[in-house]
Amino acid sequence: MAVRFLISILIISFVSFTHAFDPNPLQDFCVAVNDAEAKVFVNGKICKDPNTVSADDFLFRGLKIPGNTSNPLGSRITYVTVNEFPGLNTLGVSFVRIDYAPYGVNPPHFHPRAAEFLVVLEGTLYVGFVTTTFDPNVPNKLFTKTLYPGDVFVFPKGLIHFQFNVGKNNAVALAGFSSQYPGIMIIANALFGSNPPINIDVLTKAFQVDANVIKSLQGQF
Rank of each mutant, 00 (worst) to 15 (best):
P107I: 12
A115E: 13
H111D: 10
R113N: 15
L121W: 01
E122S: 04
T124C: 00
L125E: 07
A115Q: 13
H111C: 10
G104F: 10
P108E: 07
F117K: 03
H111N: 15
V120Q: 06
A115D: 09
E116F: 02
R113V: 09
E116A: 04
E122P: 02
E122V: 09
V120H: 06
G123H: 08
F110Q: 06
H111K: 12
H111W: 12
I98W: 00
N106A: 14
V120Y: 06
P102C: 08
Y126A: 12
R113G: 08
G104M: 13
I98H: 00
P112S: 13
I98K: 00
A114I: 04
F110P: 05
G104K: 10
V105I: 15
F117M: 14
L118W: 15
G123S: 09
G104D: 12
G123F: 04
F117L: 12
H109L: 05
V120F: 07
L121K: 01
A114M: 08
V119C: 09
V105Q: 11
V119N: 05
V119D: 03
V120D: 07
N106D: 15
L121V: 03
H109C: 05
V127Q: 02
Y126L: 15
N106T: 09
A114F: 00
D99A: 06
Y100C: 05
V127D: 04
F117S: 12
A115G: 14
L118T: 13
H111Y: 13
R113M: 12
P107Q: 11
E116H: 02
V120A: 08
V105M: 14
P112G: 10
T124G: 02
A101G: 00
L121C: 05
V105L: 14
R113C: 07
P107K: 11
V119G: 03
L125H: 03
P108V: 08
D99P: 03
G104S: 12
P112W: 11
G104P: 08
G104Q: 13
A115W: 06
R113E: 07
G123K: 07
R113L: 15
P102Q: 11
D99Q: 07
F117D: 01
L121F: 00
V120T: 12
Y126N: 15
E116T: 05
F110M: 11
H111Q: 13
A101T: 02
L118K: 01
Y100Q: 04
F110N: 13
T124S: 09
L121R: 01
I98G: 02
E116W: 00
V105Y: 01
P102D: 10
